[in-house]
Every structure is written in structure tokens, then in C-alpha cells.
Amino acid sequence: MKKQPDRPVLITDAALSQSDQLRSRQIRYVTMMGLRAGCLILGAVLISAQVPLLPLWLILCAAGMVFLPWAAVLIANDRPPKTKAERYEARNTERQRPVLDSHSAGQNEHRTIDADG
């Protein structure tokens, strides 16, 4: 029986580096823009080939050319979901924020400069 190679052990909960996240988003964006270009080329080929149900195919290609850029930008600008540790830390920092009393804000005197006087 062959011995299975050991898998590396994950020793950290650290997120991907910013450069790795950016690279991943760039790959997704370029892939979706490639699909958009494919829709344009497919539409041109379908018109020249005179296929049956041509209007339906052209509508699908046009929808891909319109909605893929929008989706690509949304996906490319999105960050990875927060981990449990990040959500926990965000909740704790919200609880620790100091809150101003309502009467302390009214005690400050503000100087008004009148341009007419």
C-alpha cells in the first residue's frame, strides 16, 4: 500500500495578502471581459451564418455584452467575506466607542461671524 503524502498544516488564520486579493479580482475581471468579447464575436458569427432563431440568439449575446461589464466591475471591486474573527473584532470596537452626552454638546459656545456688521 502506498503512503499518502502529508498535506501541509495551516498554521495561521491570516487572510490573503492585498496583492493576492488584487490578483484574484483581476483574473475574475479579465475572465468576464473575455466572455463579453466572446459574446460580441458569437453575435457576429451568428449574423453571418443566418442561424435559425437569430433574434433570440442576438438578444442573448446583447444581454451578455451589456450585463457582463456591470457584473465584472461589481465582482472585481468586492473584497472577500469577513472572517468570524474580523466580525467579532468589529462588534467589539463598536461597543467601545465613546458616546457624547446630549447636554455636553450644547455647552460649547460657538462664535458667529456676521459679514454685514
Results as ranks from 00 to 15, higher is better:
Gly34Trp: 02
Asn92Ala: 04
Trp57Asn: 02
Ser48Arg: 11
Pro55Met: 04
Val66Pro: 00
Arg111Ile: 13
Ser24Thr: 04
Cys39Ser: 06
Gly34Ile: 04
Gln21Met: 09
Ala63Leu: 11
Gly106Gln: 07
Glu94Thr: 11
Val45Ile: 13
His110Thr: 09
Val99Met: 07
Ile59Cys: 14
Cys61Pro: 04
Glu109Ser: 10
Asp6Leu: 14
Gln21His: 07
Ala37Trp: 10
Arg87Asp: 13
Gln96His: 03
Val9Pro: 00
Val45Met: 08
Arg23Asn: 12
Asn108Glu: 11
Asp114Asn: 13
Ser102Asn: 12
Asp20Trp: 07
Val73Gln: 10
Ser48Met: 14
Ile75Arg: 13
Phe67Val: 02
Tyr29Ile: 10
Pro98Glu: 05
Leu16Met: 06
Cys61Lys: 02
Ala62His: 05
Pro81Ala: 09
Gly106Val: 08
Pro55Glu: 00
Cys61Ala: 11
Pro81Met: 04
Ile59Gly: 13
Met65His: 00
Arg23Met: 08
Leu10Asn: 12
Val51Ala: 06
Lys3Ser: 10
Val30Ser: 14
Pro55Asp: 00
Gln50Leu: 05
Tyr29Phe: 15
Thr112His: 11
Ile47Gly: 01
Thr93Lys: 06
Tyr29Cys: 11
Asn92Pro: 00
Val73Cys: 10
Ser24Asn: 07
Arg79Trp: 04
Ala90Phe: 04
Gly38Tyr: 05
Leu40Tyr: 11
Ser104Ile: 05
Asp13Val: 02
Ile41Thr: 11
Phe67Tyr: 05
Ile47Lys: 04
Ser48Ile: 10
Lys82Met: 12
Ala14Asp: 12
Gln50Arg: 14
Asp20Asn: 14
Leu42Gly: 13
Ser102His: 11
Asp116Gly: 06
Gln26Leu: 15
Ala72Asn: 03
